[in-house]
Simulated scan of single mutants.
Amino acid sequence: MRPDEVLQIEDRRFAALTIGSARLEELFRGCRWAEGPVWFDDLNCLLWSDIPNNRILRWTPDPLTGGGVSVFRQLSNFANGHSRDLQGRLVSCEHGTRRVTRTEADGRITVLADRFEGRRLNSPNDVVVAGDGSIWFTDPTYGIQSDYEGFRADPEQPVRGVYRIDGHSGAIRRVAEDFFQPNGLAFSPDGTRLYVADSGTGPDGSQPRHIRGFEVQGDGLRGGGVVAVIDRGVPDGFRVDREGNLWSSAADGVQCFAPDGTRLGRILVPQTVSNLTFGGPRRNRLFLTATTSVYAIYVRTNGAQRP
């Protein structure tokens, strides 16, 4: 796509966040459903999930060839979303095992959560790490609805919730439960707000298309009003830049919202975007997982400096 076909400016503030001449680059094609991108600055690589193919892939930039892709982990337990903890370790949500795990420096896998109140989790979906080391994740039922992205099973949890794992004790607490299907989540740059996407379908067939904002109060949340509404498809994964703007996945690409919920503009992508992350040495390159492909585009802002 030509640069003039990629950016759609709806508010002049979006022009200051984007680069008019930047190209949308397709870095890789060949996934069944690409998800969960996470950037490793110290290793200069991007990891992401190819959920139905049960693998995690790795892209490493190369100035001559544009980059190469290799398999980071085959039989990933149908991993979906990823983040990094304060020590730089990979934290992952696994549909197949219905758990949240951490990959240690020596490659061992540590289980952080697989049950709550004696019942198995539904299928942890996406995860973020707070400045105090606590781990927050969403637990919809997408991974147990069929055998395509996990294993078909009945939910054991009475709700589809958002959870917090204490970074010191490992204690698990449910912090929100009034979602149809909680999905992506991200903190504001100062860590005082947690945004959570809702992308499920209600009993009457209605489908939330919004991102909600909560105030973080210790180990819990308060509030939860709608702060942004997607008008094409539903919000899946999203990230926040250093100014607090939300960059959300959508059916038409990426939709960018100011902290007050005003939609500023769009990055149009040929495929439905599932998730995204800021990366590169200056965190000014937006990496997008979009159905079968991974794309990248440079922007004029930087990702919030969080794992």
Score class of each variant (00 low, 15 high):
Gly200Pro: 04
Ile267Met: 12
Val38Ser: 03
Arg300Val: 05
Arg212Pro: 04
Leu86Gly: 11
Gly200Ser: 03
Val299Lys: 01
Ala176Trp: 01
Pro158Val: 10
Leu24Tyr: 08
Asp236Leu: 00
Thr292Cys: 12
Gln145His: 09
Asp62Thr: 12
Asn122Ala: 03
Phe151Asn: 14
Asn183Phe: 01
Asn275Ile: 00
Val91Glu: 06
Asp241Ile: 05
Asp11Tyr: 07
Val294Ser: 11
Val6Met: 09
Arg285Thr: 11
Phe14Ala: 09
Asp178Lys: 10
Asp198Asn: 10
Ser146Ile: 09
Ala296Val: 08
Gly223Gln: 07
Ala304Pro: 00
Ala105Trp: 10
Ser123Glu: 08
Pro259Cys: 04
Ile165Met: 10
Gln305Pro: 14
Arg232Trp: 10
Thr277His: 06
Gly261Asp: 11
Pro182Leu: 02
Ala304Asp: 10
Pro203Gly: 14
Leu17Val: 13
Ser248His: 07
Phe180Lys: 14
Asn245Met: 00
Val294His: 12
Gly143His: 03
Gly224Tyr: 04
Phe278Met: 06
Gly67Glu: 06
His168Asp: 13
Asp241Leu: 01
Tyr295Trp: 08
Arg174Lys: 10
Val127Thr: 02
Gly88Asp: 09
Ile19Asn: 13
Thr277Trp: 05
Phe116Trp: 15
Ile144Tyr: 11
Cys31Asn: 12
Gly261Ala: 06
Pro37Ala: 06
Ser206Tyr: 02
Glu156Gln: 13
Asn44Leu: 12
Gly253Val: 03
Leu7Cys: 14
Gly205Tyr: 04
Leu43Pro: 13
Asn302His: 13
Pro140Met: 02
Pro259Gln: 08
Ser249Pro: 06
Gly279Tyr: 00
Thr289Lys: 02
Leu276Gln: 03
Trp136Gln: 05
Pro37Gly: 02
Asp260His: 02
Ser146Thr: 14
Phe278Gly: 02
Trp39Tyr: 03
Asp236Trp: 00
Arg55Thr: 12
Pro281Phe: 03
Arg222Gly: 14
Trp39Phe: 02
Asp190Ala: 08
Asp50Gln: 09
Tyr195Leu: 03
Gly67Thr: 08
Arg73Val: 14
Val6Gln: 09
Gly265Ile: 02
Gly88Val: 07
Ala304His: 00
Asn245Pro: 11
Tyr148Met: 15
Asp219Met: 15
Asp178Trp: 03
Val273Leu: 05
Asn183His: 00
Asn54Pro: 07
Arg98Gln: 15
Leu221Arg: 07
Asn80Ala: 08
Leu90Arg: 09
Ile9Met: 06
Leu276His: 09
Val128Gly: 00
Gly244Met: 00
Ser49Tyr: 01
Gln217Phe: 15
Val254Arg: 02
Ala79Lys: 05
Thr97Gln: 09
Val100Asn: 08
Leu75Phe: 15
Val269Ser: 13
Ala258Asn: 07
Arg13Thr: 14
Glu35Leu: 06
Pro63His: 06
Asp147Thr: 06
Thr289Gly: 04
Gln145Gly: 14
Ser146Tyr: 10
Phe137Asn: 02
Asp126Gln: 04
Gly161Thr: 07
His82Pro: 04
Thr277Arg: 04
Ala250Ile: 01
Ala290Asp: 01
Pro155Gln: 04
Gly237His: 09
Cys31Lys: 05
Gly133Phe: 08
Phe40His: 13
Leu268Ile: 15
Gly67Lys: 02
